[in-house]
Protein backbone atom coordinates (compact mmCIF):
# COMPACT_ATOMS: atom_id res chain seq x y z
CA UNK A 1 0.00 0.00 0.00
CA UNK A 2 2.66 2.46 1.05
CA UNK A 3 4.42 1.81 -2.21
CA UNK A 4 1.50 3.15 -4.20
CA UNK A 5 0.69 5.95 -1.78
CA UNK A 6 4.12 7.55 -1.98
CA UNK A 7 3.31 10.59 -4.06
CA UNK A 8 6.40 11.07 -6.13
CA UNK A 9 9.70 9.31 -5.98
CA UNK A 10 12.60 10.15 -8.15
CA UNK A 11 13.22 7.95 -11.14
CA UNK A 12 16.40 6.69 -9.46
CA UNK A 13 14.56 5.23 -6.47
CA UNK A 14 11.93 3.64 -8.70
CA UNK A 15 14.73 2.10 -10.73
CA UNK A 16 16.22 0.71 -7.50
CA UNK A 17 12.78 -0.68 -6.56
CA UNK A 18 12.37 -2.34 -9.91
CA UNK A 19 15.90 -3.69 -9.64
CA UNK A 20 15.22 -5.29 -6.25
CA UNK A 21 11.88 -6.69 -7.33
CA UNK A 22 12.53 -7.95 -10.80
CA UNK A 23 16.24 -8.77 -10.64
CA UNK A 24 17.57 -9.18 -7.09
CA UNK A 25 14.90 -11.47 -5.70
CA UNK A 26 14.81 -13.92 -8.65
CA UNK A 27 18.64 -13.76 -8.70
CA UNK A 28 18.88 -14.84 -5.05
CA UNK A 29 16.56 -17.76 -5.79
CA UNK A 30 18.44 -18.85 -8.92
CA UNK A 31 21.97 -18.49 -7.54
CA UNK A 32 21.12 -20.23 -4.28
CA UNK A 33 19.41 -23.07 -6.18
CA UNK A 34 22.46 -23.52 -8.41
CA UNK A 35 24.90 -23.50 -5.49
CA UNK A 36 22.89 -26.13 -3.65
CA UNK A 37 21.35 -28.30 -6.34
CA UNK A 38 19.27 -30.34 -3.89
CA UNK A 39 17.55 -27.11 -2.87
CA UNK A 40 16.99 -26.24 -6.53
CA UNK A 41 15.43 -29.64 -7.18
CA UNK A 42 13.00 -29.20 -4.25
CA UNK A 43 12.08 -25.75 -5.47
CA UNK A 44 11.38 -26.88 -9.05
CA UNK A 45 9.22 -29.62 -7.63
CA UNK A 46 7.15 -27.19 -5.56
CA UNK A 47 6.88 -24.33 -8.05
CA UNK A 48 3.66 -25.66 -9.72
CA UNK A 49 2.06 -25.97 -6.28
CA UNK A 50 3.04 -22.40 -5.40
CA UNK A 51 1.77 -21.21 -8.79
CA UNK A 52 -1.62 -22.83 -8.19
CA UNK A 53 -1.75 -20.94 -4.91
CA UNK A 54 -0.82 -17.70 -6.61
CA UNK A 55 -3.59 -18.08 -9.20
CA UNK A 56 -5.98 -18.05 -6.23
CA UNK A 57 -4.55 -14.69 -5.10
CA UNK A 58 -5.14 -13.28 -8.56
CA UNK A 59 -8.67 -14.67 -8.65
CA UNK A 60 -9.53 -13.27 -5.21
CA UNK A 61 -8.05 -9.87 -6.13
CA UNK A 62 -10.02 -9.59 -9.37
CA UNK A 63 -13.30 -10.71 -7.77
CA UNK A 64 -12.91 -8.55 -4.65
CA UNK A 65 -11.97 -5.42 -6.60
CA UNK A 66 -14.76 -5.90 -9.15
CA UNK A 67 -17.36 -6.50 -6.46
CA UNK A 68 -15.96 -3.75 -4.24
CA UNK A 69 -15.94 -1.22 -7.07
CA UNK A 70 -19.51 -1.91 -8.09
CA UNK A 71 -20.75 -1.72 -4.51
CA UNK A 72 -18.44 1.18 -3.63
CA UNK A 73 -19.52 3.45 -6.49
CA UNK A 74 -23.17 2.76 -5.62
CA UNK A 75 -22.56 3.45 -1.93
CA UNK A 76 -20.58 6.59 -2.72
CA UNK A 77 -23.44 7.98 -4.80
CA UNK A 78 -25.94 6.92 -2.11
CA UNK A 79 -23.98 9.01 0.40
CA UNK A 80 -24.71 12.05 -1.76
CA UNK A 81 -28.41 11.34 -2.24
CA UNK A 82 -30.80 14.12 -1.23
CA UNK A 83 -32.91 11.70 0.84
CA UNK A 84 -31.70 10.76 4.33
CA UNK A 85 -33.09 7.21 4.16
CA UNK A 86 -30.77 6.54 1.22
CA UNK A 87 -27.85 8.54 2.55
CA UNK A 88 -27.79 7.35 6.16
CA UNK A 89 -27.43 3.56 5.63
CA UNK A 90 -24.60 4.17 3.17
CA UNK A 91 -22.85 6.53 5.58
CA UNK A 92 -23.11 4.07 8.46
CA UNK A 93 -21.85 1.19 6.29
CA UNK A 94 -18.88 3.19 5.05
CA UNK A 95 -17.89 4.51 8.47
CA UNK A 96 -18.00 1.04 10.05
CA UNK A 97 -16.18 -0.91 7.37
CA UNK A 98 -13.68 1.71 6.33
CA UNK A 99 -12.15 1.43 9.79
CA UNK A 100 -12.18 -2.35 10.03
CA UNK A 101 -8.92 -4.30 9.58
CA UNK A 102 -8.96 -6.62 6.58
CA UNK A 103 -8.15 -9.66 8.72
CA UNK A 104 -11.12 -9.02 11.01
CA UNK A 105 -13.45 -8.83 8.01
CA UNK A 106 -12.07 -12.03 6.51
CA UNK A 107 -12.49 -13.89 9.81
CA UNK A 108 -15.97 -12.45 10.23
CA UNK A 109 -17.17 -13.48 6.76
CA UNK A 110 -15.58 -16.91 7.13
CA UNK A 111 -17.41 -17.71 10.33
CA UNK A 112 -20.66 -15.83 9.69
CA UNK A 113 -21.49 -17.45 6.36
CA UNK A 114 -22.40 -21.18 6.28
CA UNK A 115 -20.13 -23.66 4.51
CA UNK A 116 -22.93 -24.48 2.09
CA UNK A 117 -26.15 -22.85 1.00
CA UNK A 118 -29.46 -24.41 0.06
CA UNK A 119 -30.85 -23.13 -3.19
CA UNK A 120 -34.11 -24.66 -4.51
CA UNK A 121 -33.36 -27.84 -2.58
CA UNK A 122 -29.81 -28.09 -3.95
CA UNK A 123 -26.88 -27.93 -1.61
CA UNK A 124 -24.31 -25.56 -3.05
CA UNK A 125 -20.90 -25.36 -1.42
CA UNK A 126 -19.89 -21.94 -0.17
CA UNK A 127 -16.10 -22.15 -0.44
CA UNK A 128 -13.79 -20.24 1.88
CA UNK A 129 -12.18 -18.29 -0.95
CA UNK A 130 -15.56 -16.77 -1.83
CA UNK A 131 -15.92 -15.69 1.79
CA UNK A 132 -12.48 -14.07 1.62
CA UNK A 133 -13.61 -12.30 -1.57
CA UNK A 134 -16.65 -10.95 0.28
CA UNK A 135 -14.54 -9.82 3.24
CA UNK A 136 -12.10 -7.92 1.02
CA UNK A 137 -14.93 -6.62 -1.17
CA UNK A 138 -16.63 -5.11 1.89
CA UNK A 139 -13.42 -3.32 2.84
CA UNK A 140 -12.68 -2.09 -0.69
CA UNK A 141 -16.28 -1.00 -1.24
CA UNK A 142 -16.02 1.25 1.83
CA UNK A 143 -12.78 2.80 0.53
CA UNK A 144 -14.13 3.17 -3.00
CA UNK A 145 -17.35 4.72 -1.68
CA UNK A 146 -15.25 7.45 -0.07
CA UNK A 147 -13.19 7.88 -3.24
CA UNK A 148 -16.37 8.21 -5.31
CA UNK A 149 -17.96 10.65 -2.88
CA UNK A 150 -14.83 12.77 -2.79
CA UNK A 151 -14.51 12.77 -6.57
CA UNK A 152 -18.12 13.87 -7.09
CA UNK A 153 -17.74 16.63 -4.50
CA UNK A 154 -14.53 17.81 -6.13
CA UNK A 155 -16.36 18.66 -9.36
CA UNK A 156 -17.10 22.42 -9.27
CA UNK A 157 -20.75 23.32 -8.60
CA UNK A 158 -20.68 25.40 -11.78
CA UNK A 159 -20.69 22.12 -13.72
CA UNK A 160 -23.97 21.17 -12.05
CA UNK A 161 -25.29 24.64 -12.78
CA UNK A 162 -24.38 24.32 -16.47
CA UNK A 163 -26.20 21.00 -16.76
CA UNK A 164 -29.21 22.42 -14.96
CA UNK A 165 -29.31 25.36 -17.35
CA UNK A 166 -29.37 22.92 -20.28
CA UNK A 167 -32.26 20.95 -18.84
CA UNK A 168 -30.43 17.91 -17.46
CA UNK A 169 -32.01 16.06 -14.56
CA UNK A 170 -29.78 15.30 -11.59
CA UNK A 171 -29.23 11.72 -12.71
CA UNK A 172 -28.54 12.72 -16.31
CA UNK A 173 -26.00 15.26 -15.07
CA UNK A 174 -24.29 12.55 -13.02
CA UNK A 175 -24.32 10.07 -15.87
CA UNK A 176 -23.10 12.30 -18.70
CA UNK A 177 -21.11 15.10 -17.08
CA UNK A 178 -20.12 14.51 -13.46
CA UNK A 179 -19.16 10.81 -13.34
CA UNK A 180 -17.07 10.86 -16.54
CA UNK A 181 -15.00 13.60 -14.93
CA UNK A 182 -14.79 11.58 -11.70
CA UNK A 183 -13.26 8.57 -13.46
CA UNK A 184 -10.18 10.61 -14.30
CA UNK A 185 -9.84 11.94 -10.79
CA UNK A 186 -10.48 8.73 -8.91
CA UNK A 187 -8.45 6.32 -11.02
CA UNK A 188 -5.17 6.80 -9.09
CA UNK A 189 -6.73 6.30 -5.61
CA UNK A 190 -8.75 3.41 -6.99
CA UNK A 191 -5.51 1.74 -8.08
CA UNK A 192 -4.20 2.20 -4.55
CA UNK A 193 -7.16 0.24 -3.21
CA UNK A 194 -6.68 -2.44 -5.86
CA UNK A 195 -3.03 -2.98 -4.93
CA UNK A 196 -3.75 -3.03 -1.21
CA UNK A 197 -6.47 -5.62 -1.87
CA UNK A 198 -3.96 -7.70 -3.85
CA UNK A 199 -1.68 -7.70 -0.83
CA UNK A 200 -4.60 -8.36 1.49
CA UNK A 201 -5.34 -11.65 -0.27
CA UNK A 202 -2.44 -13.20 1.64
CA UNK A 203 -4.54 -12.90 4.80
CA UNK A 204 -6.93 -15.49 3.36
CA UNK A 205 -4.31 -18.13 4.19
CA UNK A 206 -5.22 -17.66 7.86
CA UNK A 207 -8.71 -18.99 7.26
CA UNK A 208 -7.47 -21.93 5.25
CA UNK A 209 -7.81 -20.68 1.69
CA UNK A 210 -5.32 -22.37 -0.57
CA UNK A 211 -3.46 -19.32 -1.85
CA UNK A 212 0.21 -18.49 -2.20
CA UNK A 213 1.05 -17.94 1.49
CA UNK A 214 -0.79 -21.11 2.38
CA UNK A 215 1.01 -23.02 -0.36
CA UNK A 216 4.40 -21.73 0.82
CA UNK A 217 3.62 -22.78 4.38
CA UNK A 218 2.55 -26.23 3.14
CA UNK A 219 5.73 -26.55 1.13
CA UNK A 220 8.06 -25.53 3.93
CA UNK A 221 6.30 -27.89 6.36
CA UNK A 222 6.66 -30.77 3.92
CA UNK A 223 10.30 -30.15 2.96
CA UNK A 224 11.45 -29.22 6.48
CA UNK A 225 14.58 -27.39 5.46
CA UNK A 226 15.40 -23.91 6.73
CA UNK A 227 17.04 -22.79 3.46
CA UNK A 228 14.02 -24.02 1.50
CA UNK A 229 11.66 -22.11 3.80
CA UNK A 230 13.62 -18.91 3.25
CA UNK A 231 13.71 -19.40 -0.51
CA UNK A 232 10.00 -20.24 -0.63
CA UNK A 233 9.10 -16.98 1.08
CA UNK A 234 11.44 -15.01 -1.17
CA UNK A 235 9.47 -16.50 -4.07
CA UNK A 236 6.24 -15.38 -2.36
CA UNK A 237 7.59 -11.83 -2.01
CA UNK A 238 8.67 -11.73 -5.63
CA UNK A 239 5.24 -12.97 -6.73
CA UNK A 240 3.38 -10.28 -4.76
CA UNK A 241 5.80 -7.72 -6.10
CA UNK A 242 5.04 -8.66 -9.69
CA UNK A 243 1.33 -8.42 -8.90
CA UNK A 244 1.41 -5.05 -7.13
CA UNK A 245 4.29 -3.15 -8.63
CA UNK A 246 2.75 -2.73 -12.10
CA UNK A 247 -0.37 -1.34 -10.43
CA UNK A 248 1.72 1.16 -8.49
CA UNK A 249 3.62 2.16 -11.62
CA UNK A 250 0.46 2.59 -13.62
CA UNK A 251 -1.00 4.72 -10.83
CA UNK A 252 1.99 7.01 -10.83
CA UNK A 253 1.92 7.36 -14.58
CA UNK A 254 -1.79 8.18 -14.56
CA UNK A 255 -1.26 10.74 -11.79
CA UNK A 256 1.43 12.45 -13.81
CA UNK A 257 -0.64 12.41 -16.96
CA UNK A 258 -3.69 13.89 -15.21
CA UNK A 259 -1.59 16.50 -13.47
CA UNK A 260 -0.09 17.50 -16.80
CA UNK A 261 -3.44 17.48 -18.64
Amino acid sequence: MSMAVTPKTTSTSSRVLRYIGFVAMPLIVIVWSLIDLSLGRELVEWIPYLASGFSMNILITICAVTLGTTAGVTLGLMQLAPFWFVRLPAQIYVQIFRNAPALVLIFATTYIFPFEIVLFGNYLPFPDWVKAVIGLAILSSAYIAEITRGAVLSIPTTQWEATKGLGFSRLQALRYVILPQCVRRSLPPWMNVASSMAMGTSLASLVGVHELMHAATDASTAVRRLDFTIIAYVVVMAAFFTLCYPIARLTRRLEQRFNAG
Binding site: E161, A162, G165, G167, Q181
Partner: peptide
Protein backbone atom coordinates in the same frame (compact mmCIF):
# COMPACT_ATOMS: atom_id res chain seq x y z
CA UNK B 1 -35.10 25.01 -19.06
CA UNK B 2 -34.94 23.02 -22.28
CA UNK B 3 -36.66 25.98 -23.96
CA UNK B 4 -34.71 28.78 -22.28
CA UNK B 5 -30.99 28.95 -22.95
CA UNK B 6 -28.59 30.42 -20.42
CA UNK B 7 -24.95 31.42 -20.79
CA UNK B 8 -22.93 31.93 -17.63
CA UNK B 9 -20.15 34.29 -16.66
CA UNK B 10 -17.70 31.41 -16.20
CA UNK B 11 -18.69 29.57 -19.45
CA UNK B 12 -18.84 26.23 -17.55
CA UNK B 13 -17.98 24.05 -20.51
CA UNK B 14 -17.61 20.33 -19.84
Amino acid sequence: RKRVGIVFQQYNLF
